[in-house]
Amino acid sequence: MIQPQILRLTKTNYGNWSIQMKALLGSQDCWDMVIKEYVKPENAAAEAALTNEEKRALRDARKRDQRALYYIFQAVDESNFEKIAETTTVKQAWETLQKSLQGVEKAKKVRLQSLRAEFEMLKMKTTESIDDYVSRVKAVENEMKRNGEALGVVRVMEKILHH
């Protein structure tokens, strides 16, 4: 198996990291483990009572959950690893990182206010190429999306064409 190149999560790149990890976990058939948590049987007797098909499905879910957790462990720096070292499922690890790095709703709202202002103030510099300006506009738009606000294609195109 070829080890995919994984972006390392730091304190400042959660937005891009989460997009890349969703794609990676999706490509490894593991993203659904983040969405719906792997549920362990209550005890050995409960597991023994499962049908062979249920046992096979349980083993598959356990394996996919642990594979996804492994990828996340590989993709975090030391300080973020400490936050998730005790988690036992990928869903727990993902939510822990999301809460600690994406921030609470109030911080998100403040961030969106500044992004809105930044978007409105964007103007093409006289020495800037069109490609560079479009890249700056798209970077702000993408950051706004990651924080829960979609501008819409028309609004972005108006911004690009207006300046």
Rank of each mutant, 00 (worst) to 15 (best):
R56K: 14
T127Q: 14
T126G: 08
F81N: 11
T51I: 09
E47C: 07
L24W: 07
E86K: 10
E105F: 05
T127N: 15
K91S: 15
Q74Y: 07
Y71G: 00
S18T: 12
Q66D: 09
T87I: 05
I72N: 02
E105W: 05
T89V: 10
Q74K: 12
A117N: 11
D65P: 03
V90L: 03
I19Q: 10
E118P: 00
A93V: 08
A45R: 13
E86W: 13
L50Y: 12
D132M: 05
S100E: 14
L25C: 07
P41Q: 09
E53M: 10
I130R: 07
D65E: 07
V104S: 06
T51C: 09
R59S: 12
L58C: 01
Y71R: 00
Q98C: 05
T89D: 05
N16I: 14
S100R: 07
N80C: 14
T126L: 10
L101Q: 06
Q66E: 11
A61I: 05
I72R: 04
Y38H: 10
L112D: 03
R56M: 12
M121H: 09
N80F: 01
T12V: 11
R56P: 00
R64K: 15
R116K: 11
K83W: 07
K109L: 03
W31D: 05
S79V: 13
Y71F: 15
D77V: 08
T127K: 14
I35C: 09
Q66H: 11
V104C: 07
L101A: 01
Y14R: 03
G103M: 09
D131K: 13
K11I: 08
T127E: 15
V134Q: 06
D65Y: 09
T127R: 14
E37R: 08
Q74P: 00
N43V: 04
Y14N: 02
K109E: 02
A75V: 08
Y14G: 02
T87H: 05
S129A: 10
E42S: 09
